[in-house]
């Protein structure tokens, strides 16, 4: 087209109306393409029923002191731990230690219910499930690549970058919580 014999010099000059039509048509096609692809991509996002499973309730009387119960929430494990006074003591004492992801123990529990620690049981490194009692800091240890968490679920050593996540939860009454 550009080398058309009819208009040897006509092309390549200032943009004319034909160029405008080419650009406009191209842009419209590109826009339509994106608009058509988006619903396809979006169909892979969480479906309505998956999102609807967002919250669960849990009865705290099921956990004994010094024990933890693991429940499944949004496909992930949640640890509900009834901490011993010694554990709470230790967690508070280490508030001022060198923490990779600084947070006090008080920020990680709900006031008046300090004995119950609720955590998403997914290592913040690559998502393995840490086990309680084998680490060097009295809390959890992740066997996958060796992350140590303390009695507040804070990261202390290893490749994980952040503390175990505290999900949003609230007390419905003294012995019942709703997670999510």
């Amino acid at each position: 087209m550009a080398e058309s014999v009819v208009h040897p010099e006509g092309e390549g000059q200032d943009p004319n109306r034909r160029d405008f039509i080419h650009i406009a048509a191209g842009a419209a096609a590109a826009g339509a393409g994106v608009a058509a692809v988006w619903p396809l991509i979006n169909s892979m996002n969480p479906a309505a029923d998956t999102l609807a499973l967002a919250s669960i309730e849990f009865d705290l009387t099921k956990v004994q002191e010094g024990q933890q119960v693991v429940i499944k929430w949004q496909g992930k494990p949640v640890f509900v731990r009834y901490r011993t006074p010694a554990e709470i003591e230790r967690a508070r004492a280490e508030d001022s230690a060198a923490l990779p992801d600084p947070q006090t123990d008080a920020e990680r529990v709900i006031e008046g219910h300090e004995q119950y620690l609720v955590l998403v049981g997914s290592c913040t490194h690559l998502g393995c499930v840490p086990t309680f009692g084998t680490g060097d800091f009295g809390g959890w240890f992740c066997p996958c690549h060796g992350s140590h968490y303390d009695t507040s679920g804070r990261i202390r050593r290893g490749p994980a970058p952040a503390n175990l996540v505290v999900p949003t939860y609230e007390y419905l009454n003294d012995t019942r919580i709703r997670i999510g």
């Binding site: 991509i41 892979m44 996002n45 969480p46 479906a47 998956t50 949004q74 496909g75 992930k76 997914s122």
Partner: peptide, 17 residues
């Protein structure tokens, strides 16, 4: 990650895709 897994964690949606 959520888009890839089709939910907050690896689950049925993930296995299907």
């Amino acid at each position: 990650l959520t888009w890839l897994q089709g939910g907050p964690a690896i689950d049925n949606a993930t296995l299907n895709r």
